Computed example of a mutant assay.
Amino acid sequence: MMPFSSRYAHQARSARRSILTTATILLGGCALLAATACAPAGSASSQSGTAGKPAVLAAFYPLEWLSTKVAGPDATVTGLTRPGVEPHDLELTPRQIADIEQADLVVYLKGVQPAVDEAVEQYAADKAFDVASTVTTLTASAEGHEGEEAHEPVAYDPHLWLDPSRFATVATALGARLGQADAAHTAAYTGRAASTAGELNALDQELQQGLGTCARRTLVTSHTAFGYLADRYRLKQVGISGLDAEAEPAPARIAEVAGIARREKVTTIFTEELLSPKVSEVLAKEVGAATAVLNPIESRPPSGDYLSAARANLATLRTALECT
């Protein structure tokens, strides 16, 4: 699959090549130094290897959450993206690239983080697990891209973790993949994967019931991150911007969304914690709507975890859509 937006690839390509070249030079040098000198706190190298546990690297938060649930005490899981960092903006350090090369398994989502994609291709192609390969993905909508800087064609929407039923499928596949990497604990990984899939399917049922009967079904969002949520629960997503969260929407697009919001009697414009709310706030004022935060769960929540963040989203949506 192609990256979902070439914006990140164009901006990061030269920097990525520089980092990868530097990493190749530094890998040998790091081996000559003490681990604390080469590895920052939180790196895989500083945390893995205890009692011979496999080292698992997860590209960003939802994959880290899932990997931790399935790995349990039998493997060490480390996230590559720190809390509060937009996953698409991640640039790898030489130490992180060394960790990718040394890891037993890298769990990632191809097309989301160009730097991770390239590092995996060069250093970990035989021990990487692309979660998008386990489910049917949604084709990226062109909605919201009007007037943006011209990009290469978008291939697919990567936000599949916002559909718990799809994420349950990923959990099952991850359990099998961990079992391949660590045959001694295959049954434990498979069991935890089944338990996690059960939790995700229960969450799916909560969302099905909670969003089953609502006064309105249109979501006006700051960008089109919620396609899987809308697809699964029969909602209509209208993004001010497209999949590229940092792209500036054209004035014509803002006017178009305002017209849709008025016509469909939208009472809430949804913003995100890691994005500027300014455009959404202006739009909300223009159409006489309130704003509320809808979490794409790309980064670790300030409190709680993936499940609690998804349930908080459900409560927000029920209020905004007047669900009964």
Rank of each mutant, 00 (worst) to 15 (best):
R262M: 07
Y228W: 05
R216K: 13
V293S: 12
T271S: 08
A252V: 10
L243T: 03
G259C: 06
K265W: 03
S222K: 10
A215N: 12
I254P: 03
A292E: 12
E281V: 08
F226Y: 07
L307R: 09
I254E: 07
G239N: 05
Y228Q: 02
R217C: 14
A255F: 03
G259R: 07
A225I: 11
E281P: 06
T218M: 08
P251F: 08
A252F: 09
S303K: 14
S303E: 15
V282F: 08
L294N: 02
P301Y: 02
E264M: 04
E246N: 15
A290V: 14
G304W: 10
E246Y: 13
R232H: 08
S241K: 01
K236E: 15
L283Q: 03
S222L: 11
P277I: 09
A252P: 10
G210T: 05
S280K: 00
A290E: 14
S299V: 09
E264N: 13
F226C: 02
F226T: 01
T291Q: 00
S280W: 03
I254W: 02
A292W: 07
G288P: 04
S308L: 05
V293K: 11
G304K: 13
E246C: 11
V220W: 00
E281Y: 05
R234L: 13
F270Y: 06
G242Y: 00
L229Q: 03
A252I: 04
G210I: 06
D231Q: 15
G212D: 05
R262S: 12
S303T: 15
P277H: 11
V257K: 00
S280D: 06
A290P: 06
A289N: 02
L229Y: 02
G288H: 07
T213A: 11
G304I: 10
S299H: 01
V279I: 15
N295W: 00
P302F: 05
A290K: 14
R234T: 15
A258L: 12
A225H: 08
T267G: 10
Y233C: 07
R234C: 13
Y306E: 05
L207E: 01
G304Q: 11
L219K: 05
T268M: 08
K285V: 08
S308M: 12
P301I: 06
T218N: 13
T213H: 15
L283K: 01
Q209K: 12
N295C: 04
S222A: 13
G304T: 13
E273S: 14
I254V: 14
K265P: 01
I297E: 07
E246W: 13
T291N: 04
G212R: 09
T267M: 09
Y233S: 09
I254M: 08
V257A: 00
A252R: 15
A225S: 13
L274P: 09
S276Q: 14
E248Y: 12
E206P: 08
L219A: 10
K236F: 09
Q237H: 11
L274K: 10
C214A: 11
Y228F: 10
R300Y: 03
Q208D: 14
K265R: 14
A215L: 07
S222V: 11
